[in-house]
Amino acid sequence: MKEKKVVIDVEGLTKCFGAFKAVDNISFEVFQGEIFGFLGANGAGKTTAMRMLCGLSLPTSGKARVAGFDIYKQSEQVKRNIGYMSQKFSLYEDLTVMENIRLFGGIYGLSHKQIKEKSSELIETLDLIEVSKKLVAALPLGWKQKLAFSIAILHKPQIVFLDEPTGGVDPITRRQFWKLIYKATSESITVFVTTHYMDEAEYCDRISMMVDGRIKALDSPQNLKMHFSASSMDDVFLRLARKAQRQAE
């Protein structure tokens, strides 16, 4: 089998807030072009772990390399080689569609020429021609999320982190969103995603399940179901997360 390129390499990563271990000695690898589902109950430590991997927060101990860079010493290079999209905030609502693309293109260091090419390509593929001069606030949520994702990968990052990208999105748009994810992976972009929709967990190549700050299981959806003799990912999640001790953050 072809040697798979590791784009996220985590070893013994830990983050404490005072006496509280939010992330407790986690280790895993994510491979290039893979869709990696990062699941866990509320308060399990997902957001804390993700913030460390994005170079936004320093670990208490442990090692991690993201896109080939050390998250302690090279956090700026990490940020330049990843994309990030959250459900709560990803675009400026009071800028137009075009202005958002130009702003983020500039932040990611693209040239004027590149921004021009990218924006017309993006507006066409997302079918946003008629609304390109409208404020983002006026777009339906599903469109915003598709646009936010496309902007998060504007600079062709090695990895894109998606924090609950489809929460509240209608069922048809939710599926169109996953098509965009598949398209990105076909261009070798690695996708690191959290979701509360268990059907979406099935679309991931591999899933990790965090419980009380630790990774309790990590495998393909099919193997996880087999291992826990569960009929769905919903069942797998319930079995693992019901054992959680931690109730509040």
Binding site: A41, G167, G168, H196, D234, F237, L238, A244
Partner: peptide, 9 residues
């Protein structure tokens, strides 16, 4: 909304 599967149940 935004609550995990166990808490939702």
């Amino acid at each position: 909304t935004g609550v995990d599967v166990v808490s939702r149940r």
